[in-house]
Each structure stands twice: as C-alpha cells, then as structure tokens.
Design a protein around this nucleic acid. Sequence first.
DNA 1: GTGAAAGCGCTAACAA
DNA 2: TTGTTAGCGCTTTCAC
Lengths: 318, 318
Amino acid sequence: MATIYDIAKKTGISKSTVSRVVSGNGYVSEDKRQTILNAMHELNYIPNQMAKNLRNKRTNTIGFLVNDYLPLVGEFINVFTNIAAKNNYSVNVYFTKTAENEINTLNLLTIRALDAVFILTRINSWDLISSYAKFGPISTWQRVENPNIYSNYVDHYPIYLKILERLDKQGYTKIGHVFSTIRNANTRARVQAIEDFSTKHPNSDQTYQLFYHGQSNAGQDSAMKWLGLINRPQVMIFFADYVAAEFMTTLRKHHVKIPENCVVIGSDNSEIAELMNIPTVDLCFRSQAQNGFIYLYNQLNKKQLPFQKQNPKWIPGY
Amino acid sequence: MATIYDIAKKTGISKSTVSRVVSGNGYVSEDKRQTILNAMHELNYIPNQMAKNLRNKRTNTIGFLVNDYLPLVGEFINVFTNIAAKNNYSVNVYFTKTAENEINTLNLLTIRALDAVFILTRINSWDLISSYAKFGPISTWQRVENPNIYSNYVDHYPIYLKILERLDKQGYTKIGHVFSTIRNANTRARVQAIEDFSTKHPNSDQTYQLFYHGQSNAGQDSAMKWLGLINRPQVMIFFADYVAAEFMTTLRKHHVKIPENCVVIGSDNSEIAELMNIPTVDLCFRSQAQNGFIYLYNQLNKKQLPFQKQNPKWIPGY
DNA sequence: GTGAAAGCGCTAACAA
DNA sequence: TTGTTAGCGCTTTCAC
C-alpha cells in the first residue's frame, strides 16, 4: 500500500507538497502537480482514511440509533443513508436494545468514532441523552423540547383533527383509536385533537382508545379486542401503518370485510400501507430523515444545506 | 480531552504502561494499574478510537452493501448489525444505486475505512467485485462460485421441489411461477426443480412462468397478467414475500378471493408474510446474515466463531 | 511555491 | 514488570 511518503520519494518532491495535491489544499505549481499525479497513478496510491481521521479529528461518520426493529426503520435508514452518502458521510446503524447499549453507543461520540448522531427511537431520558451533545450534534425526528437536541418533528394535532373532520363528513360517528405510548408527545397531540373535536361534535363517539408501549403485537391485540366488542367502532385509526396492517389481517382471518365492516386507517405512508392499500397519512418521515441529517451536516460544516419543506397529507387507500 | 500522555504525566508512569492497562495487553503490577485507573477516572479519560484505528490498521467496521431498498433489506440489516454489535463491530450501510457507486464503496476497503464487506445485492460482476477481496474479506448470501468470495447460500432446488410435491398431493395441477432474473443462480435452481418435477408428473402444468429484473412492481404486473388469463393457475409461487403481497393486494382489489380463487405462496419468511399471513418458505435469511458476518469475523480474527445451521422449512399461512 | 519538522493519540518491539 | 523509542500516514504551521 503506497503512502504519501512513497510518492514523495519516487518524485523527489516533499511529503507536504504531495499532501497538498492529495488533499487539494494549498498552492502547487502545475508541473509538480502533474508529476505527482502521475506517480500517484503509477503507484496506485490511495489515501489512508484512518490517518486522515486522526489528523482532521473527524470521521465523516454519523451514528443512526434505533432501539428496535420495525418495518418503518428500514425505509428510514434508506432515506437517511442516501442523503448522507450524497454529502460524503457514512452512516453506522445501531440497534440499541437496552439502555446500557444505548449509552455505549452514544459513547462513540466521545471516543471520536462518530461525528454526530441521529436518534430514531431511544430508551434513556432525553436529558441524559442531551448530555452527550457536547461531544457532537444530536438530532431526532421525535418531538422533544431540549436546547441541545435538534427535533424535526411534525405536529400530529392539525392532521389528526383533519382526519376526524373528514370522517365526520363521511358520516362516521363511532371512531376507535390505537395509540403508541402516552410518553410520546405526538400521542398527546392526538389525544388533544380528539378532545377538541369531541367538544365541537358532541354526537360523535371517540371514546374507544387503546395505548400500547411495546408495539410488538398491538395490531393483533387490538383486533381481538375489537372482535370482542358489542358496539364496534366503524373506523379504527392507528399510530403506525404496520399496526394497522396486522389489525386488518387479523380481522380478515375472522372473516370481517375491510373496509365494508371496518375502515382501517394507518399513519406514516410507509411501504406496507402501499403494499396493502391501507389509507394512511403522510407524516413526512422521509423529509424528517433528510432534515435530521441536514441539521447534523450544518453543525459539522461551514457549508449550509437548506432544509426540506414538509406538508403532511392524506393518502387514500382501498 | 485527556490523552494517554496526560495520564502518564499525572501519575509519573510511562505512556506504554498506561497503554497496557487501557488496551488490556501486557503485564502491569496491581498497584500501578490502580493508580492509572484512578487517574483515568479523574481526568475523564476516554481512548481515541481514530488513533487506535491508525495504529492497529483496523476500524472494526464492516460495510453492508445493497443496491436498492426492499422490505427484506431492513430485516436483514437488523440481524446483521445485531450479531456484529455483539462481536464489537460497527456496520456501515450503503445503498449503492449505481455501478460506479458500488465501486466507490468497495474502495473504502482499499483506503482502510472498512475492514470487510458484506454484499446483499450487487450490480457489478462478481469477477470485478472479487478483485477487492485482496483488501479485505467479502461475503454474500447470494449463490456465487468464486474462490475469493464467501457465499452462504441456501440451495432452492430441494425446497422448491418439496413445495411442488406438496401442492401436487393437495390436488393442485396448474401452478404459476414468478421468478427474479435468470441471472440469479437460485432462479436457475428453481427452474431446474420445475423441469425435473414435470418429467415425473407429466399431468401437472407448470408452464406459466414470469421473470422480473427490476423488481419494483413485479407483484402488480403479474397480478394484472393473471387477471387477463383465460385458464388461470390455481396457485402462484413468488420469489419474494413482498412480491406475493403486492400480487395478493392487487387481486383483492379486483375481488378475487385469496386463497379460495388463487393460492399465493411467497419466499423468505419475512415480516410481510407474517403481517399478511401469506404461506411462505423460510430460506433462512436470518442465519445467512449471521453466517455472512461470522465468515468475515473469522477471517479478521484469530478467535473463530461457529457457523449457524440452516434448515429451510415450510411456513403455512392463511 | 516548497520543504522541514512537529505532532494527532496510540501500540509494540526491544531493552532494561 | 516497566520504560524508551520508533513509528502508523497524514496535515499544517513556519521559514525560506
């Protein structure tokens, strides 16, 4: 493996000048540049990234933290790594199953193995996590109020209100809701939207509400519960497409017709909704992924990338 | 940021001894170890990974290459990064959309930014790719005959034959097949299985066969084709669960009952098959991901990890 | 415009 | 068991 030193020796030019042409910094006369370029070619020279990292004190690598796998995660990683690659960053993916694991991964910031970190889902408190921001920028798509963490969230309140208005116009009066944990700020926004809607529309029944922390089989569980009801909601709205998908499949197994007997609505506009033709709402996770990266990039570099606009919108299915 | 030098200065012990306790290599007397440990704690010392990398000529990072996103990719990354993390490796995910991009990513081996590479899907020829094996081990789950690339493939021939026998016993005589590209060795194995089955069972009709390269909407396309047939196959077998899922959803939109009017069978045993209750076959991608990592690990380290056993099996659905 | 030299933080061969 | 020493490959003052 040829080094900068080898090509300096071969050409009789100093290491520093060679470095200048390799890194593109500083002035080098045209003829020297050419001889160096030729030598680089001949010796098959490739700069050593580790040496650069040590010298430059940056790895051009961003950590992507998520604590568990869900179908949406893959799609998110796809968008995130793509914009990162375009801007010359690598992304390391970590599934941080435990709180301890999450901290170990955040520690990669302190040992300078990671320049920055994006958090899709987390276990530890935002307060604890934010204490790592002094070692490198941190961003997330979640709704967090913390001065040290950039949060590119989409407010679920207005969009949820719109869904309810829309269903009301279509004549649906009994709606069921399946939420993620109330610890989540957007769950609270949704609950607030329902409350406000209900005061305006006292005839509408929005009281059937389910909450799930561990999301492993929320869809199946809520389906079994729905089947057990005497007075079943006509519409069920879910906090995620894949939960809606599981719900739908379980009902179908029990010969319930979708959407005739129960309208199923997801959230995310993910691949599964498309694959199963589930009406859903685009909460812009794709641009959230991009903006999450853009913030980190802007913190790390002088050059500033512009943020993406986000317009949540309804996606009809069936 | 404290360095090894700072703690040497503080304790009056040499850098090398400090290094010994930090890295855990070599003998250090118990009392010195304690004073060093204390100083490390006081100064909040954290070893610099970049310096280690440069010194050790390894990054403990593995590249995960895939040229496009599919639902299975996320699940695969999940398994792969988990076993990697357990063994102290990070994984960088790259979506290499173009041939050029793929080569640029393989070049990360040459600049020592990556210790090894796993290839899920690829664009360039295996011959070209294998030329990078001299810079670091390469493994894949695909079926490749190349001395420089470890291939942890599962032979689709016997399992496909079994599916056909099973369907035959159940009385199905007209089967349709949707394949990936014939460039894929396992597609050829499947075709061979059909051929051999057909000679044994001349009454069975296996002639309806579709091939797709770009897999973007193979499911929808094959569904439209199926709907247009006069003499429709009773069973359709797909090369991937998500293609089966798309096929199924499209037929349902056209009021075809599944499985009454058409039995749909996937391959992979992925999340989507579970979510939609599609009968499928477990081709062990999870252990393939693990074995793919294990090979790379074993090449990179003296310590050898044992490979996982693989038993493809039928997963009933509906 | 160019080169000498120092050093990023760590490890390991060698000597003591 | 410990310390000295020589780098890993690159970048960047600083002096010429």
